[in-house]
Write a protein that binds this DNA or RNA. Structure first.
Lengths: 358, 358
DNA sequence: ACCCCATGCTAATACGTATTATCTCTTGAC
DNA sequence: GTCAAGAGATAATACGTATTAGCATGGGGT
């Protein structure tokens, strides 16, 4: 038993060249089929034969170091991609990404190694940036690190975010859902059903998506000359009390968790949903996301909400990124896309009650 | 508008060195804290200051170019990883793979580009093997290509299969589920419930997993001195008729699809499941797999089956692969693991009927 | 005064690849 | 016979990093 690791002899171009009796450069030329440089058919034959014999595979590091692309798109997620639970947030995104990558002829590099800080991943860990292995990168995840984003923009590394992101360091390419428009549309739906007191219940934490939802809500309020009631309190029962006090007949709720909690509170207070209180969920949001709202055993509720086109977003992001890599765009420009979200009619919204609740 | 792609601005050690007034080597020394080489505290200070100012990050490629091993594990799947449907076959496997990779400090490279032939992916495309990009590779998928597998073994590329595989070219490392034992256990369960005519309904196509299930079934039959009845016909109603003709009281069925079809046929023939016919499913198999059996709108049935430890299999495969890469094993040896599958008691198995069905 | 050695740094090199400049033939035209 | 052209190959180089060999300096021991 030889204790030496039978290291897979990484075949280099130099070895292939030796076997074929040519120079390393010749091998590279044959491999890359460079225009303008002619290779004798006989030599090409010999080199190709040697390539087959040795089972040569290109070393991406060497290649990339030289500044060539290696047909790899990085995918960086701020949380684990495959959760242990059944709920699956990233799945549809990745589905779209995978599908489109395959169509475009790129492999996907999932960055998992950089380690985490407090459960969240970091792009830059101990000053090492692994992103560079890929030609470009797609970033996903709710918990974005501002400084990291800035640094990324600064480095001019080609990347596309899924979900709208802003950076003080410059414009960011992204593909997001048009939450503002969808929220406004949901408001309009409620309005047409007779609701005149519509509240917004959102995250306290400020992120782009939360801001978008609120801006859509505020826009709709302004349009109908109604005073907005935007609640962000983390305490469900306090929120619920506030809704009752203000005689709210419909609530636009940012996450399913919050909606579930409100639903439960309403039930136990003797209110029926939707007859007494209509509830609209602002997007089929991440079911796995941590929330301070207590999530009880959920009966399957057929929420009225809007569908976030996750799969399309993933695919679109890939197309944009590949476009950037091809140099289709002027360097400075960035592509920013908001895809429409389709309204989903569920059973948690109906006409406003005739007599306001006491 | 400059049409040249703006080259990525990467801070290099050389630039840091220039700023600090030292050599590139000095920067590297400071960064790596090499033992034996001493750096003057004052110089170290200056370099560290320059590092902070520039926001330097290590270029992983330059580094790995020296050491080889790029801390990347390849994942090759013979079908798309993220299906568009809700059913998710690969999810749990990948979950385990991801988790363990992260723990081991490896990134994952999903191979999607090699193109497909008739919907199935191919490892070797145009003779070039992209797998070599990774340090080692994990292979998954029902539709394995014999020749490809042989070639892989031949190349001595480090890889681990998920699911038992055999190759004529040599031993293969794998992590599988112990279908034989689990099938035998399910048989024993049925036996203890009084069933004396237990049939096997499996794939016609011969694969390792199918073979394992059958071998477990045959072993159990031998133990109880019963003549096996192993059906592989693709026509559900023919199979069902055969079961009736042979007065079978319990069927071990390889896939959920087949089970669903049998269930439906039994119902429409006036038989109750499980009172008249017990059905055990041999593993919670891939719900997305194509089957010739017609899959009707399925009521959610609480099958009696065994749980395939997918997540554990993924994680284990990674550990084995990383071990191979580290050289823990003697080169020639291969690791072959079968993980136990836990029995799941559902509502499709009960005591054998007193009077055999007519 | 001389040598030795430790200290603190730099120059040089290797890693694998792609590309450019350069070199060597062969051949055809004059 | 000479020259130009051009085909066909090679040498050289750059990419960013880690490491080793080596260079300068100075202090202490003999």
């Amino acid at each position: 038993m030889q204790h030496v690791t039978q290291r897979r002899k990484q075949v280099t171009q130099a070895e292939v060249a030796r076997l074929a009796g040519v120079s390393q450069a010749m091998v590279s030329l044959v491999l890359n089929d460079s225009d303008g440089v002619r290779v004798a058919p006989e030599t090409r034959k010999r080199v190709e034969e040697a390539l087959r014999q040795t089972g040569y595979t290109v070393d991406i590091m060497g290649r990339r170091l030289r500044g060539k692309s290696n047909q790899i798109l990085g995918v960086f997620t701020y949380e684990a991609v495959f959760p242990s639970g059944t709920a699956d947030f990233y799945g549809p995104f990745l589905g779209g990404i995978e599908e489109e990558s395959e169509a475009q002829g790129f492999d996907l590099l999932l960055f998992t190694s950089p380690g985490r800080r407090q459960g969240r991943r970091k792009v830059y860990e101990e000053g090492s940036n692994r992103l560079g292995i890929a030609d470009g990168c797609i970033l996903l995840g709710r918990h974005t690190d501002r400084d990291e984003l800035d640094q990324l923009v600064d480095e001019r590394f080609p990347f596309v975010f899924i979900g709208r992101r802003e950076s003080s360091a410059g414009p960011v390419s992204y593909v997001g859902g048009d939450y503002a428009a969808a929220t406004a549309a949901l408001y309009e739906r409620l309005w047409s059903l007779g609701h005149r007191r519509v509240a917004l219940v959102g995250y306290r934490e400020e992120s782009e998506s939360t801001a978008d939802r609120r801006s859509g809500y505020l826009r709709a309020c302004r349009r109908h000359r109604k005073t907005p009631l935007a609640l962000t309190d983390d305490d469900p029962s306090a929120v619920f009390e506030r809704l009752r006090a203000d005689q709210v007949t419909a609530a636009l709720v940012e996450t399913t968790e919050m909606a579930v909690a409100l639903h439960a509170l309403a039930m136990s207070a003797g209110l029926r949903v939707p007859e007494d209180l209509s509830i609209g969920v602002l997007g089929d949001t991440d079911p796995t996301q941590t929330s301070s709202w207590p999530l009880r055993s959920t009966p399957e509720i057929d929420w009225t909400t809007f569908r976030i086109p996750r799969r399309e977003m993933g695919a679109r992001a890939v197309r944009i990124l590949v476009g950037m890599l091809r140099g289709d765009m002027e360097p400075g420009r960035r592509t920013q896309v908001l895809l429409p979200c389709e309204l989903v009619d569920g059973s948690t919204v109906t006409e406003a009650p005739r007599t306001p609740r006491r």
